[in-house]
Design a protein around this nucleic acid. Structure first.
Lengths: 362, 362
DNA sequence: TTGTACGCGTTATCAC
DNA sequence: GTGATAACGCGTACAA
């Protein structure tokens, strides 16, 4: 029942004091106890021993008794180790990232890799340090996930990451992030932000809406920007002129979206529909409308983006855009494990019509 | 502008073919190019060179030109490497885990560790394989997060994990999970599930409620069970007899909770309050009540658990229990980086009263 | 089938 | 200051 922890593991004979080198039993220890050479022990433990000689059993027994755990670091140095694949995002929250990670993890583990997730908190320095550390640790690939600034500065940064990773034989893969215009060789698996919002606007137009507002952050991050462009696309398709005053700046939280909405609807009573950059914001918008006594969708229709689980439970349930997050992760994972990359991939997104959108009021 | 990628990196002179050993420049390469010994190059690169001799600059230049990235695996073998701390959960979703992870990450990175998150998908085999792999990779500590079965089987499994990890000098830390009765030496940082629900019931009782139901999964997982016990505690305190028929079994999703609620309220019109095991379930409960035309809190009061961001945005906003997830993670992180562990820690949770609870209807 | 010898990339020691 | 040399723990030709 009890383990062989307190067995007679020979004290580490290392002469160098070194800041604690683990201290577990080594292959040599096992070999010594089994009275064979290290080579034999190695073969048996790796399961590549030919037959089942007497030593075979002795090695297994010795390993068990000593509580031997193979040193993956040493194995990696021989080029036989399990290389890990890292999923790097600013912050690990929301089903969006989790779903992408799930898709990538499936293929990573299926291919014998250790799948790992790390966060940067949106801090550029931490991000750079993280990529550096991962490179030192000899990862197989890094999936850089989520929105990033659409700036020249970021492109150069990404290029630096890719270069550092390439030096250790690893790949950089942009995930849920458009390909870099100036660096097409950096892999990118993305979904259709722009077309998703566009179809949301189309849906509203078909319901008769003309005065359609957009709530989102209007900064230069790729995701917000692409979605904002999708909004403009939708208007253009319908021959509606884009009105700057209907583009409402808001932070990413539902609280901020709510606050922005309160101020907005008061000064724009003519608006009959609001397209939101994210479901989280849509939740805030809905709450603000609710509290202002504005009925959804009777007075104002609302469209979200992401299809989070919870927004289907709102009252009314939210019309939103569903993106194939799992597939994005899976494709990115495929590249990570070595599949060929033949150019940027953009997966289609899909409008999910629910109760928050309806015919325009007359 | 362009990087030194295509510089004259000497071809790997390794005689053994080995399954791709990275291929980057090594310390020896740098030393050779700088015309110094490996020892000198190592010292300079590690910043522990004494003065700034001529070689100093030459080494730095050579490293830059060759695109040298130190091999963290080799460093680790010398006992100088950066050991990582792993955060292991069944699935990485919801602000709950993210917040705990954030707390742990702060202290981990502040102490020079690489903080890493891994998921098991709730699969026992994957969990075991993961712990094994992490041990091989010589992690510094594993934070095992979230609910687990309150069974003897799990205790033994956890004990095996702890043993394996101990063999490589790593610790196992239970996070958001009660200490194991039979294995108190396994560290545990938890928050007060039971007391939190209990205070929720107390709050309802103070509002005059007597017929209080509980919606949750009634299985043997620790988290659900502890919260269920808290519900019973609250009833007992108020001298209300526990009625089995008021304990409603439900899955973890809001949909399942909604379905369970629909069936329940119909057959139990006398109930005036529902305590939910999680906020996610509470969302489903609220939706079901809404659709059944039952007003909250006029007809039925609802209490959740977790204080997710979104439940404050419900209509009405949800009364719920807030647990110190960040602190849990932080404390666990402290143990992970080597602080002493003097027995199980249980952090207090706090009731957040909002709009979903009110005086009992007459 | 088993053992010998060497290489992986790094750091620490100890002379010079 | 710097350079040989010996670890670290493991895999694997090659020879026996």
């Amino acid at each position: 029942m009890t383990t062989a922890l307190d067995d007679d593991i020979p004290a580490r004979r290392g002469t160098s004091p070194g800041p604690e080198r683990g201290g577990g039993a080594t292959l040599a220890d096992v070999a010594r106890r089994a009275e064979v050479s290290r080579a034999t022990a190695s073969r048996v433990l790796a399961g590549r021993a030919a037959g089942k000689s007497a030593s075979h059993a002795r090695v297994l027994a010795a390993a068990e008794e000593l509580g031997y755990v193979v040193n993956g670091l040493a194995r990696s140095m021989m080029g036989v180790g399990r290389r890990s694949i890292a999923f790097v995002s600013s912050i690990m929250v929301g089903p969006t990232f989790a779903t992408m990670a799930g898709g990538a993890e499936d293929v990573a583990t299926a291919n014998g890799h250790l799948f790992t997730m790390c966060t940067t908190g949106g801090d550029v320095d931490r991000e750079a340090a993280l990529i550096e550390t991962l490179s030192e640790q000899r990862v197989a690939a890094v999936l850089l996930v989520g929105s990033t600034p659409a700036t020249e500065e970021f492109e150069q940064r990404a290029q630096r990451y890719a270069t550092t990773l390439a030096r250790v034989g690893a790949r950089l893969i942009l995930c849920g992030r458009a390909a870099l215009p100036h660096h097409p060789q950096i892999a990118s698996i993305d979904y259709d932000h722009r077309g998703g919002v566009r179809s949301g606007v189309e849906h509203l137009v078909a319901l008769g809406h003309r005065r359609i507002a957009f709530v989102g952050s209007l900064d230069d991050m790729t995701t917000p920007h692409q979605r904002f462009l999708g909004y403009q696309d939708g208007l253009a398709d319908a021959g509606i002129e884009f009105d700057t005053t209907l583009a409402v700046q808001s932070g990413n939280s539902s609280d901020e979206a709510a606050a922005a909405t309160v101020a907005f609807v008061e000064s724009h009573p003519e608006v009959t529909a609001i397209v939101c950059q994210t479901d989280v914001m849509a939740v805030g918008v809905c709450r603000a409308l609710h509290e202002a006594g504005i009925a959804i969708p009777a007075h104002i229709s609302v469209v979200g983006f992401d299809d989070m689980q919870l927004v289907a439970d709102l009252t009314p349930s939210l019309t939103t855009v569903r993106a194939p997050f799992h597939d994005v992760g899976e494709l990115a994972g495929r590249i990570a494990v070595g599949e060929a990359y033949d150019g940027a991939v953009v997966l289609p997104s899909e409008l999910i019509v629910r109760g928050s959108t309806g015919p325009v009021r007359d």
